[in-house]
Structure formats: C-alpha cells, structure tokens
Design a protein around this nucleic acid. Structure first.
Lengths: 341, 341
DNA sequence: AATGACGTTGACAACGTTGTCATCGGACAC
DNA sequence: GTGTCCGATGACAACGTTGTCAACGTCATT
C-alpha cells in the first residue's frame, strides 16, 4: 500500500488537522491546554500520516545536550566480559529511556580517541570507557564541557574521573599464591600486552606472590604480548616443549585460560598440569577438570558503573570516586592439581 | 584548569576568530574557498574553545535522515550468538562511520515495538532486527517511510523485508537423524517457547527426522518453554528421573545444551547419554566429551546481514531477499555415544 | 579608465522542533 | 453594557548548522 513517502513533519500534521504547528507540538508532547475535539483531530492526522517525533530536532530546540544517549566503549563486545557489562548497562539505562551506543576498541588507542570524538560529536550524555590508552588526558576538555565519564576495568590516568576496577594485583597474587601453596615452583604466566593496565597489574601480582615467598620465577615461563585464545594456546604448547616445562599455569585473561586449556587437552595433560585463570566465564565449570579462576563479578561491576554514571547524569558533582571490587578465588579443580612428586 | 563551561558553538568560534559563522562552517567541514590565514585563525579558535561539531544539528540542516546511526535489536547482547552478531555488524559499519545502537529484546514483543519506536524517533538510517514478535506488520509504515530493515535469525511475517536465517528445520532434522542413525530411540528434545520462530522450526525438524523413519517419539521426552541454561538443566534432571529415561538429548539452543551438559555431568552420565546441541559456542570443543553441535556460522550471518543493510543504505531498492544459511553438523564426540545395548 | 572575472566572505533562510508571548472569544461579575 | 479574566490557539524566534546567493575587493584585460 502506497509508495515510498517522505516522513511527515509537524507542519504536515498541522495542515491536515487544520491547526497550527504549535498545537500539534502540544498534542504530541501531551501538554495541557488543547480542547478535546482538536486533540482528537490532531491525533487522527498523526496516525494517518504516520508522523513520528523527531528527537534530534526536539533536543536541539530544547537546548541542553540531553540526547538520551550514552556511549559505551568496550574492549570487544563479543568477549563475554564486555558483553555482560554492556548488558548490565543496558538494563540500568532502560528505565531512563537512555539508549546505548557501543563500540569495540580492541586495545587500539587511536580508535579510542576517534570513537570518543565521534561520540562527543553525537552529544552523548555520558560515557563508559574501558580505556585502551595509557593516559586519558585528551578527555579533560570534554569533561570540562560537562561530559560525565566512568572508566571501567582500568583506572584513570591523566584525568580525574570515576572508575570501577578490580584489585588486579591482589587477584593475581591470590592466584599465584594458590599454586605456590601447593608446592608448584615452575609456574608459567600468560599475559596480555604489558602496556595494558590490567596485564601490568596481574603480572605484578604474579611476581609479588613469588617474591613474598623468596622465590625467583623462571623468566622463560612468563610470556607476554599474548592476544587472544590462539596465542595462548600456542604459547602453552611451546612452554610444554621446554626441557623443564611448567607444572602449573597462571592465565592472565579468560581467553588465555581457554587457549591454555585447549593446549593441555591436546597434549593429554589436563589432569597433570595445574591451571588457574583470571576472570571467570560461562562454562568454566564444565571443563575437565573444572577451571579454577579468579572471578571478577561482572554483574556487580556493571551495576556499580551504571550507578556512578546515572548519578552524574542526574547532576552529581561530588569528587570522582574510585570504586575497587575485590576478586575472589573460585576453586573448581584445575588449580588444585599438585606438582609431580 | 577552568570551571565547567558550556560547549562552544560556531557562533563563539566565529566571534573569537573575527569571522562569520559561515566561514567557520567552511573551515570545520574542510570546504575550499577560505584564505589560508583565515583558516588558521579559525582553527586556532576551534582549538582554544574546544569546539566540537554538533552532528545532530548538522544532519538536521542537511535535510535527509542520514543520522549515521543504525539500530540493532537483538535477543540478548550478553548471549554469545547476539554478541558475535553485534560485533560483525560493528566491523562492517565502522568503515562507513555508522554507529550502532544496540538493545536486548529478551523475547518480549512489547519491548520490541517500544524500542523500534524509539529508534525511529532517533531517525536511525537502518535497522537490524532479531524479532520477538509473531508478526512485524507494525514495521510497514516505517519501511514505507524509507527505513531499511533486515531481519536476522527469523524470517519476516506480515511484511516484506530482507532476512538472513538458518535452515532451522533442516538443521534440527540433521541433529536428530544423527542420533537416530546410531540407534537411539528415546531422544529427549529441549525446546524454547514454542511461540518462537526458531524453536518451532527446530521442533519440527526433530519430529520430521522421527517421522521419516516411521518412529513415533515419546511426547514426554519433549520439553518446551525452556528459557535459559538453568531451565535446561532442571528439565534434563527431571527427564533422567523417569522410569525409562532418554538415551540421548537434542538441545534446541546453545544455552539449553549447556544446561543439559551440566545436568549430565552432575549425574555422572556425560559419557553415557548422547547430546547434540543446536548452535555452536566458544568452548563447546572443551567439554567432556566435546559437544557435537549443529553450527550456524555467526560470522557469515553477520556479514550477510551487514551486506544487505549496507546495500539498502546505499539506495538499493530491489525486492527483499531471503538469504538462508545452511547449518552444518560438527561431530565432536558427545553426539556419537551409542545407546545402551 | 572602465569592464569583467575571480576568489573571499557574509547575510539570510531553513532543517523540525518548542518556549514565549500575544491574541482571540466567551463567560462572568458588576 | 462594560470590564475582567481565563482557556485555547497561533505567530514568532530560536536551538546549531549549512545551502544559496549577493557583495566585496583585487587584478587583468580592453
């Protein structure tokens, strides 16, 4: 029915209903002061023309930024951690009628800056950022112009902004200590790019655990710069080929733990080499043996992040907060394999 | 440095640079016809005032809808299928500078309608929809007004729109047949709400496989209305308690397969009850035994969807296409467990 | 010296909407 | 009958931007 038509505007509705544009505006916005018969006539016209409110034009006229949009720049929306976080944010924002623009950064600082610029251009009301950059000072002019920013997963550097992070160092220390306590002395560490905030801290925690026991870890067992499950799998395969292979593995990210599990399984070593991963993920409990992990409570992190942002959106101007969530050790089996006698 | 300031507009920049607004516009948009010294002066003013282009105002003036935004209404962005799809879309759109507004529907038709309305109000240039509704006729007025819509995972009903789907019936038939061929005769089926397009078709395929072998499946082994892993786990637990429990399980969704795997593991039956799942997921290969699945190629689906939408965005007005992707059986072990002798 | 061409620049209107204010007609009180 | 008040309605400007077009100065040409 009917060809392709241009969207009707209030002008068209007004013409059809035989009233002024302003009256249409009143009806559309449910404002009082319109006689009932007129209101009905306008609504009929709205229906017949399939008129839809133009939010951008409305916001523009209403002044204020209020775009009813926030940005969420995450590492990779297809990764379970980012995806769960996005979902938490969405649920928190739904009630406010605030929509979410999401994008993946893949640890690329340039992309982060470009996307932030794009979001500012779109006048988002707020920003949730899992930064890829070392410093976020480029954000300060935006924040001064009133853009609320909450950093997740990594603490701010170069700016004063809210953040929700996990005790990475402590978590990694816990994981490594768990393995050391069982007698492991040759523990491999699988770490992401050392420039990354979380990677750095987790590596630190790993070293701390050794240090406080007066143990010097074999550097050849620490592999950094690992991006993704594939890289983790290959690294572990190489480590297992060493003259004195590790008896345990600490994986600094969930995908690296998955890669490690795959490598171990392929070599038939799942039951003989211990494995602890940082960051829980769906199905970790269904691996063989079930995977022992340091869990960061994603739902909690998401809710805390959303709470901080919502408060700022609602005008909270108190000093920035750094919320730190304690990770927990979830013992499931893979991390309790003893070293060979 | 500096208090909270209102965003500068072109007017402010023009005043500071001592030129007209139009000249600022020219510089900001990299248009020719501005003398070099003037251009420099304007750029300095832009920098000093931290001026940022206002995309909404620009688009408004430029006429046309072109918001540089598309909507992606998926079932649940934290589910690996939706998340992977979102990521594919994002990658396809990045080059165009098109941003993505995503939201989760959770199979709620009302939310779908409300969110579509919201997206229209925001004048998205296009829409990717994994529908929750039985019929999408409510979309026809939007489409007539020029909104390109591509349905994913479920075929359109009540409208003529592009779609990218999987041969659900055929896939499920394949999965059930795989189990039947090994001699299983008591096969349980775990199915989502029967109102859901994919659930209906998969159940159909399951029945088809039996029918073409002249076998009448035990209705008590078919459980529908299962939402989420938990529900799947409980259903399987109940099934295992029957006098004559199933010797194999066909799970109609990846989360139901996960729930089933969990229930089997808990009962120590992972190696004795066969399991085939519909829709692959990360780590399915690491379960014990590795999970046999009907795989739908998410990346491919995402790319096809993006291609269709991009074509429409670029003005393609050819008749709607229904692209159907063939699922494949991935044999890994769990589906090859024979029935007890 | 007058003419035309060209490169720069700005005034103005308009995109679709809404806040402000004026206008209009009728109801009511005196 | 006059004055007042109130509810309903609309004219107009403005949000921040850009397309159109006119105006300006400079320079080369005749």
């Amino acid at each position: 029915m009917g060809d392709r038509v241009e969207r009707a505007t209030m002008r068209d509705v007004a013409a059809l209903a035989g009233v002024s544009i302003k009256t249409v505006s009143r009806v559309v916005n449910d404002e009082p002061g319109v006689a009932e018969p007129v209101r009905v006539r306008v609504q009929e016209a709205v229906g017949r023309l399939a008129y839809r409110h133009h939010l951008a034009a409305s916001n523009l006229r209403r002044g204020a930024s209020r775009s009813g949009l926030i940005g969420a720049l995450l590492q990779d929306v297809s990764n379970s951690f980012s995806a769960a976080l996005l979902r938490s944010l969405e649920d928190a924002m739904r009630a406010r009628g605030t929509a979410i623009l999401s994008a993946s950064l893949d640890e690329e600082p340039d992309r982060e800056r470009a996307l932030v610029h794009d979001l500012v251009t779109r006048r988002v009301d707020g920003l949730v950022l899992m930064p890829s950059t070392d410093r976020q000072d480029y954000l300060s002019s935006e924040m001064r112009a009133g853009l609320p920013v909450v950093l997740v997963d990594r603490e701010p550097s170069g700016i004063a902004a809210d953040s929700v992070t996990v005790e990475n160092t402590e978590g990694a220390r816990m994981g490594a200590e768990h393995l050391l306590a069982q007698g492991h002395r040759r523990i491999a560490a699988l770490i992401d790019l050392p420039g990354i905030y979380t990677a750095r801290h987790r590596l630190e925690g790993f070293a701390d655990a050794h240090r406080s026991r007066g143990i010097h870890p074999d550097e050849r067992l620490t592999v950094t710069g690992l991006r993704g499950a594939e890289a983790g799998e290959q690294a572990v395969t190489r480590l297992l080929d060493l003259d004195r292979p590790p008896t345990a593995i600490f994986a600094g990210r969930n995908d690296l733990a998955q890669g490690a599990a795959r490598a171990l399984r392929r070599r038939g070593l799942s039951e003989s080499v211990a494995l602890v991963g940082f960051d829980d993920f769906p199905l970790a409990d269904l691996l063989t043996p079930p995977l022992t992990v340091i869990r960061q409570d994603v739902v909690r992190i998401g809710r805390l992040t959303a709470d901080l942002l919502v408060a700022r959106l609602d005008g909270d101007v108190s000093p920035p907060q750094r919320v730190v969530v304690e990770p927990t050790l979830v013992v499931r089996g893979s991390g309790e394999i003893p070293p060979p006698a």
